[in-house]
């Protein structure tokens, strides 16, 4: 899922300092699961903003709503009536949701309440970790199911580098070295010989580098 974390409240308050009324929109998708942009967080953000402005004797009116998914135009259509009289819309979705709302309401000021961090999952309650860099050409079958693109700090394909020590990455004693993990796993699978093969330079054209990527499924396109 997509992991996002809320921006500091001061930063959000600064974005809406000239507004009288705002619509705060949560999302029931990934950001609900990672506890940053669901119903509860949406209500809390709205009330925090109201209280701050109350204290400044410059009240702010808020309206809240939670979309089933902000990354789907049909769910955003439900905001049509709500956006009419607000000065701005604050989205608690990932960056996709913010942009979908902005696209639908060209005359509205749409603001992100979240920093969209990465795609990953929780490793313990309250802790999430990145697992995939969305490179567009998965190589997990070569690396024992551990992604070096995103879990190795240098995206090395022929690791581990000389900074790997005691199982940790050179960047931090809290970061496991992805290549130590790959080594251990390949060893337990009896496939260490695979690591002797030179992995060629990666084709990054399927990754972030070529403008917005598109995925097309001809068979499900209607009309």
């Amino acid at each position: 899922m997509i992991i996002a974390q809320q921006k500091p409240i001061q930063e959000i308050a600064e974005m809406v300092k000239d507004c009288r009324k705002v619509l705060v929109v949560g999302c029931a998708g990934c950001v609900t699961v990672c506890l940053s942009g669901g119903e509860k967080e949406t209500e809390i953000l709205a009330s925090e903003l109201r209280i701050m402005r109350q204290l400044q004797e410059n009240p702010l009116e808020t309206v809240t709503f939670v979309c089933t998914r902000q990354c789907d135009p049909e769910y955003i259509a439900m905001l049509d009536n709500l956006v009419e009289d607000v000065d701005a819309v604050i989205s608690l979705a990932c960056g996709v949701g913010v942009q979908y709302i902005a696209e639908r309401y060209p005359s509205k000021w749409v603001l992100p309440a979240q920093n969209t961090n990465f795609i990953g999952g929780s490793i313990e309650h309250g802790v999430w970790e990145e697992r995939c860099g969305m490179c567009g050409n998965c190589i997990l079958h070569l690396t024992g199911g551990i992604c070096p693109i995103i879990r190795c700090s240098k995206s090395i394909l022929n690791g581990p580098c000389g900074g790997s020590q005691y199982g940790k990455c050179e960047v931090s004693k809290d970061t496991p070295c992805a290549w130590q993990l790959i080594y251990d796993r390949m060893q337990s699978l009896g496939k260490l010989d695979k690591l002797l093969e030179l992995q060629p330079p990666k084709d990054w054209s399927t990754s972030r580098d070529g403008g917005p990527r598109k995925a097309v499924r001809e068979d499900v396109i209607i009309g």
Binding site: N158, P160, G162, G163, Q165, Q180, Y183, L196, L198
Partner: peptide
């Protein structure tokens, strides 16, 4: 370069060969 002091130690020589 090669780092005999990095880990996993047994793999360092293999990586050198690579």
């Amino acid at each position: 370069v090669a780092n005999p002091f990095a880990d996993p130690f047994e793999f360092r020589v293999v990586r050198l060969e690579k």
